[in-house]
């Protein structure tokens, strides 16, 4: 589930060769000059289960958005739209807390197939 090659191209701070950086290649004092660049690091591979939200059952209470530890519930126009499977770790809090039971957890092995649909 990692798309590192694709996303690293957007990086403001090019760290593609960092594995071989010497003393003079880093910012002074190990500063990280690009805010929020952890989004280029994908934690989706940690999952054993992934969430699916049923659009029809969902009441748009937005609880899942506020309870997600990984900023992985995507929202637009004050509505939950999708999950960010690049970063979702599959903790299942969203499913557990959903008052309408609109979110369910499924074995990770089924993800590729389900997302295609």
């Amino acid at each position: 589930m990692t798309h590192k090659d694709k996303t690293t191209k957007e990086m403001k701070w090019d760290i593609s060769g960092i594995k071989n950086w010497g003393p003079g290649d880093h910012e002074l004092g190990s500063i990280i000059p690009e805010a929020g660049n952890a989004r280029y690091y994908h934690t989706g591979g940690w999952r054993t289960e992934f969430p699916i939200r049923d659009e029809e059952t969902c009441t748009q209470c937005l609880f899942c958005y506020f309870f997600c530890p990984d900023s992985s519930v995507l929202a637009e126009n004050q509505k939950v739209t999708d999950f960010d499977y690049d970063h979702c770790k599959g903790c299942g809090i969203c499913a557990k807390e959903c008052p309408a039971d609109a979110i369910t957890m499924h074995p990770e092995s089924e993800l590729a197939e389900r997302v295609k649909k």
Binding site: A38, H42, T43, R47, S71, D86, H87, I93
Partner: peptide, 22 residues
């Protein structure tokens, strides 16, 4: 509240289900 910016990005490596990032 959902219209406010999310100041933390995904991709941090706190454990799954950790309360701290919430």
């Amino acid at each position: 509240y959902i219209d406010r910016p999310d100041h933390l990005s995904g991709g941090h490596r706190l454990c799954a289900g950790c309360g701290a990032p919430v």
